[in-house]
């Protein structure tokens, strides 16, 4: 059986090459919606006054939420909402029969609060083939737009099925 994908030197040459940046926004409404989505009732994610009384700038993003990529129908994917852009393995000719989330690891260096604008850059980190599945790992870095400080780092793996 032919491999569904081959990790060529050309693919490996893309490891670590940063794609163009994209803006992510965390707002009070988007944080509340995410918190609702996971079923949290912690007022730190809903109530601005309460969050401020706990020493935060505004309500705090639940773990896992690093803002919503700014959306424009000309530049973002209609299904996943992510920007369609070069880099991060976007140019790989991956199989398209199925797509699964292979996992996310997030390292936090600071809190993300409502009102934060983050600038994300990502690069391809690893591609592995197992049977009909291609595991593509990207690394993303999120910086606070105002301070320039790195607030989170992520490793995201998607599984492309051929």
């Amino acid at each position: 059986m032919a491999e569904v994908f081959e990790v060529t030197d050309e693919v490996k040459a893309q490891y670590g090459v940063e794609g163009p940046p994209w803006t992510y926004e965390a707002t009070t409404t988007s944080i509340r919606m995410y918190a609702r989505g996971i079923g949290s009732v912690d007022p730190i994610h809903y109530d601005v006054d309460f969050a401020k009384s706990q020493g935060f700038r505004s309500i705090v993003a639940p773990l896992g939420y690093i803002g919503t990529p700014t959306f424009h129908p000309d530049t973002n994917d209609g299904t996943f909402g992510f920007p369609r852009r070069a880099g991060g393995g976007a140019r790989l000719n991956l199989p398209t029969k199925g797509l699964l989330d292979g996992g996310t690891e997030t390292e936090y260096l600071d809190y993300i609060c409502a009102g934060d604008m983050l600038v994300e850059t990502s690069s391809l980190a690893d591609v592995r083939v197992r049977g009909n599945m291609v595991f593509v790992t990207n690394e993303a870095v999120y910086k606070n737009q105002e301070s320039g400080k790195v607030v989170a780092k992520q490793r995201l793996t998607s599984i492309h099925i051929g």
């Binding site: 926004e25 707002t27 009070t28 409404t29 988007s30 919503t68 700014t70 959306f71 424009h72």
Partner: peptide
């Protein structure tokens, strides 16, 4: 609340 994310 009217914010950029929910407007979009």
């Amino acid at each position: 609340e009217v914010e950029r994310t929910n407007c979009r």
